[in-house]
């Protein structure tokens, strides 16, 4: 009679219990959700990292410029002075200074090694400009430089900044698209698993129909099960994904682009949205599949 007493509890024989356990489908759904969540965490990390990169490049490069002075050795000092004079009266500049020999050596060091005799080479003089928020009038400055120092060329980084920022933006878009595709693939796989479960439980559906169950009750039995599986699998995958991202090399150690893929600060909260989103995807996909299939069975 203990079993009978258990039956009396309102939720004892919930709609999900009328469907027999399906081991293989259950494991497949959990595994799929886990794998997709793992990939989603990486796509999210990629998207956030490229977003940061695009912002950084956009902001940092937008407020800096370089003037390159190519002139015979005997005119270099005069042209440099002329350029600095022009810059001193140029609005929108926060600072400007010529790069020293050591700084020039450091710039060339990755290509020519540390022993490059910078002083004996006919290298152009570089002047670094830092702009204010208002920025400079690049075209106006070019005109003045062409008159005062014909060997000076202003490079406001626009030429190479734009494709870099565009590339980073596209990478961010690809990351977001990957998230959408992962969500769609998850929905597709859960739909297939739900369809397989419904097909395997034709007898259960028939019996439930026989005793007067409505489609929503029958669908709920499958929806609840697949939603929980989707959530559990996604939670596992998200945890593993976050662990993998946390174990990526630190940005400061290597300093490269790829090492900056991890989450930063509050961005660590974003992956926590993956399990509930996976559960929502599983809920919607299973419910739609179940109701569609049940509509085809009288």
């Amino acid at each position: 009679m203990a079993r009978l007493a258990w039956l009396m509890r309102a939720d004892a024989l919930g709609s999900d219990r009328v469907v027999p356990p399906t081991g293989f489908t259950a494991r497949l759904t959990v595994l799929t959700a886990a794998a997709m969540a793992f990939l989603a965490v990486f796509a999210l990390a990629l998207s956030l990292a490229t977003g940061r990169l695009a912002d950084r490049w956009s902001q940092a490069l937008a407020r800096s410029a370089t003037i390159r002075i190519s002139a015979p050795a005997d005119q270099m000092a005069a042209q440099t002075r002329a350029v600095l004079d022009v810059l001193a009266t140029t609005p929108g500049l926060a600072s400007s200074r010529p790069l020293t020999g050591d700084e020039m050596r450091k710039l060339l060091d990755p290509w020519f090694g540390p022993d490059l005799p910078v002083d004996s080479l006919p290298l152009p003089q570089l002047i670094e400009l830092v702009e204010t928020d208002a920025g400079i009038d690049a075209e106006g400055l070019r005109l003045r430089l062409s008159v005062e120092a014909p060997g000076a060329v202003l490079d406001d980084h626009t030429r190479w900044r734009r494709p870099l920022v565009a590339a980073a933006e596209r990478l961010r878009l690809l990351g977001l698209m990957s998230l959408v595709l992962i969500g769609a693939a998850t929905a597709g796989m859960i739909t297939l698993a739900a369809q397989a479960a419904l097909a395997a439980n034709g007898q259960v559906i028939r019996v439930l129909r026989l005793v007067g169950a409505r489609d929503l009750f029958i669908a709920r039995a499958f929806v609840r099960r697949f939603t929980l599986r989707g959530f559990a699998g996604a939670a596992i995958g998200t945890a593993l994904g976050m662990l993998a991202v946390a174990l990526l090399p630190d940005t400061d150690e290597a300093g490269g682009f790829l090492t900056g893929l991890g989450f930063q600060g509050v961005a660590w909260a974003w992956p926590l949205l993956v399990p509930p989103l996976a559960a929502i995807v599983a809920f919607v996909a299973t419910r739609a599949a179940a109701l569609r299939i049940l509509r085809g069975i009288r």
Binding site: L4, L7, L13, S15, R17, P21, V211
Partner: peptide, 16 residues
């Protein structure tokens, strides 16, 4: 429903 007990099968119309 073979995975449910006799009592659970008997009360299935109520459950459903």
């Amino acid at each position: 429903l073979d995975h449910l007990s006799v009592a659970e099968n008997v009360v299935l119309p109520l459950t459903a």
